[in-house]
Design a protein around this nucleic acid. Structure first.
Lengths: 252, 252
DNA sequence: CGACTATAATTGGTTGAACCATTGAGATCA
DNA sequence: TGATCTCAATGGTTCAACCAATTATAGTCG
């Protein structure tokens, strides 16, 4: 054993040697082509048999790569004579599904969800005020009208669906795709949550929507943000109380 | 053509008939078992050959299902004698990768990214003040110290890495996994962005970090949020200006 | 001529058997 | 005891088919 400490190779000099699987190499190449604009939305990749040849792998391995890109939301696979692997127009489906899975796994608790929802919703309301178009406003008004119709018809499920859509429409009016995706993801988790604790009428939601619409019409961002925050906080208390009750109701 | 409008089947009465592929049926079953707690973190699924038998499909098809769950972040596949498919402890890797892909696809523009970053970062700073432990504070202080060391050593890459980590640590101190994931996702996109426009020293970041640490020590949430917001806004102007310049520099 | 129909070609979906590569536990030996 | 070897278990990959959905095309009938 040497008495003197040998020279240390500084941290960061090495990277972990990752045994890259064949299909990962393929997805990486395709991702690169996306990043470099060599592939763009709507393009169709060669047929599986051709691609497998080009990459020099078996069709099964290639399919694992395509499957991986499909799940990642980058590709859409269509059957038939004019089918193939098409570059998807990037919606955030994969992100939404991913966050939804985390909720399913139990790593995200309802209070985390509502907290994030308040934060995102408030900011979305503020931005939507500044950037909404007339068409956005019209869509939101139609949504609120439909929610009222569903309420009168006593269709709680439909009403909940329309309510989710309101947040999605509002996020789109904010004209920031990151916020759109985050909103969709949070609302999808909320949907699971609501299904677990059961639908319940919230008499204060509709009046709040009306006030929010008024603020949007007037482009009063502070009022819109405040209205959204107060409504969501109220909803949060309501939901968490229901959740506690349902959790106590049937302990495993 | 009938003169009278026939009775309409109300919207929502039908669902699109989705030709479910075999591997989708498998992933759905496994997801269900996750949701019902029949499978939990750390569990190992039977070997591929056994599982394929149980589901009554070929091993290739089963593997596409496993691959899909792996990409979705629910499973980890390990080789070797004690290998197999393990239920992952849910980190948000899949979500981070998904958002990162959207940025790569060009659907998310830098100004969208920085806007979301300001919003999330500000709220994270506020919550971290309220919920940080002594250990969180210590980790953040160590991070700042390392950033200073990297600055002195002139290692811009390392310095950038440590800076990303600061936001991640701060998000963890906020004790909300949703915000942790969102922060990681936004920082991952920021990393791509920075790599595209090149590293650049920002002399005002380090002093801001010090002020932020002071606010965290004092648990002064408003001060922390204000400091974070002002720093990010300044950074935003800086980055967007660089981006404009680099975009003009080489127009396609 | 036009509308419908049968057919063929193309493409993704699935199968089954085989072999390779990695990993770690247990047997073996100095 | 401890280092080494062997080997079984497991995921990774390949190959060669065949199935199923979709659409272009040629053909057929009114």
């Amino acid at each position: 054993m040497p008495a003197l400490r040998p020279t240390l190779v500084p941290r960061g000099a090495f990277r972990p040697v990752a045994t890259r699987r064949a299909f990962e190499e393929i997805t990486a190449q395709i991702r690169d082509q996306l990043a470099s604009q060599a592939l763009k939305t709507g393009d169709r990749l060669p047929a599986e048999r051709d691609l497998a040849d080009q990459f020099g792998v078996s069709r099964n391995t290639l399919r694992e790569a395509l499957r991986s890109l499909e799940i990642g939301g980058l590709l859409e696979l269509r059957k038939g004579a004019t089918g193939g692997a098409f570059i998807r127009e990037g919606g955030g489906d994969a992100v939404v599904a991913g966050l939804s899975d985390l909720f399913r796994l139990g790593n995200i608790r309802p209070e985390h969800l509502t907290e994030a929802r308040i934060m995102i919703g408030t900011e979305v309301a503020r931005l939507a005020c500044a950037r909404r178009t007339a068409a956005d406003l019209k869509a939101l008004e139609a949504n609120v009208a439909e929610a009222e119709a569903a309420t009168r018809a006593g269709d709680l499920v439909r009403r909940a669906e329309v309510h989710y859509e309101f947040h999605s429409l509002l996020a789109r009016a904010a004209k920031n795709p990151v916020l759109t995706i985050l909103t969709d993801a949070v609302m999808e988790m909320t949907r699971h949550f609501i299904e677990a604790i059961g639908y319940q009428p919230n008499p204060y939601v509709m009046p709040s929507r009306k006030r929010l619409l008024a603020a949007l019409r007037a482009k009063n961002a502070d009022a819109a943000a405040a209205e959204m925050a107060s409504m969501l906080r109220r909803l949060q208390r309501f939901h968490l109380a229901r959740f506690e009750a349902s959790a106590k109701g049937k302990p495993k």
